[in-house]
Design a protein around this nucleic acid. Structure first.
Lengths: 220, 220
DNA sequence: ATCGGGACATTTGTACACAATATGCAAAAT
DNA sequence: ATTTTGCATATTGTGTACAAATGTCCCGAT
């Protein structure tokens, strides 16, 4: 795993740029420009774009190139509903199998980020922390395929989560919910934890939709 | 959509070959050999392999190449459990929105395949028919992201479904279940349909696991 | 004025050639 | 004898160059 091909490097960096909001939905990504940007040939760029296509961040049209995907409000709702469904399924199975070590790890991730929050604004890495925390809770279920699906759903919705965080200061709220989630997990209350998780995800969704609709309204 | 690049063509054909069982799990797919096979250069082959990697059919290791993935019994169970979860979710939402036209289309697909079954052994296209039928039932839910996930889960488990069909004559059973499913859908009985669907998927899973374990036992 | 058709330019898709890396074997050192 | 180091070879990864396809612009016809 130590070695990274140029294609992987470009894919990783480009993913960050897309998720960071550098390109608005529907932007064409010219292979030549990206190649010059990264100082590589177009081939690793193409391969990176293909990877991102599979992740749902860009779309290829034969002989017309790659475009960043545009998510509608309906699709965002759909993505978050699916997250509720799958993450709830996994969490329910993970909680009875949580060991003290698992809980300690989740605790550590959470307090580390609390500390980072107080130090400064780390929006860039919030997604990673968020996913790391959720992963720590889900891992004991030992459902790798489901985890892969969850990762995919998260990647697809990440761009919009960032947008929401930028406009509304909801990180603190999310952190409070994380603590509540951890407490319920510690008590082994699967039903309660799933309920909090559902609310956690759906609230984030509504926040994003609100921001997005406000944004669209102001553009029109 | 009319035009197909060579990369897409190779991806489609190679997917069929993998799903058809031509390569056992863990086989290395040499780019050079495939390129000569298809009469193209290695680049579209690489791109095809990247696509298949995203679909979970092969795995890339840097500088070592692509290998077909190997699914464990645990992963197969996980995949089918996820199918129950997601397909049930979609079906429940689709049934109240089913129009007579939707039902007619599903009916047509089903009777077309019944006819094909009587004519000869069409195992090659069973997956397509199967997916087409399920898609017809799910489509009215208008959940494209969920449909994409379902397609992905189906692709991953297809190889093993074929194996099961080859060893056990379960197509007829599946067809009977399809008819039952369609009847319940026609009556608007969402709960009943979901129950039949769950049984439909889990029975297939158990059949595959039985075949696989028998297979593994005879190898050892 | 509008619509249709054809040449041009831009961009993607692919072949070919080379560079970089992993693996296996052999030989040497401990 | 075991381990390690270096080399040979095969295979992947990438740069360069060319072919194919798409969209655009201009021109002429209706």
């Amino acid at each position: 795993m130590a070695f990274k091909t140029r294609a992987q490097y470009v894919a990783d960096d480009l993913r960050q740029r897309i998720l960071g909001g550098e390109f608005s939905g529907g932007t064409q990504l010219r292979q030549d420009a990206l190649a010059k940007d990264y100082g590589v040939s177009r081939i690793p760029v193409r391969e990176a774009l293909l990877t991102l296509e599979a992740e749902g961040l860009v779309e290829f049209h034969a002989h017309r190139g790659a475009f960043t995907t545009e998510l509608s409000v309906a699709k965002i709702r759909e993505l978050f509903d699916l997250r509720v469904l799958v993450e709830g399924y996994v969490l329910e199975r993970a909680i009875p199998r949580l060991t003290p070590a698992d809980l300690a790890q989740a605790e550590t991730i959470l307090s580390d980020y609390d500390a980072a929050l107080n130090a400064g604004h780390q929006i860039d890495h919030w997604s990673d922390f968020n996913f790391a925390f959720h992963r720590a809770l889900y891992a004991p279920a030992e459902l790798p395929e489901a985890m892969a699906m969850i990762a995919q759903l998260n990647t697809k919705s990440d761009r919009y989560i960032r947008m929401q965080l930028l406009y509304t200061r909801q990180i603190e709220k999310a952190e409070r919910e994380h603590h509540a989630l951890l407490d319920l997990a510690r008590q082994g209350d699967a039903a309660g934890a799933c309920q909090v998780l559902e609310r956690h995800i759906l609230d984030a969704c509504e926040g994003i939709v609100a921001v997005l609709e406000h944004h669209l309204a102001s553009q029109a």
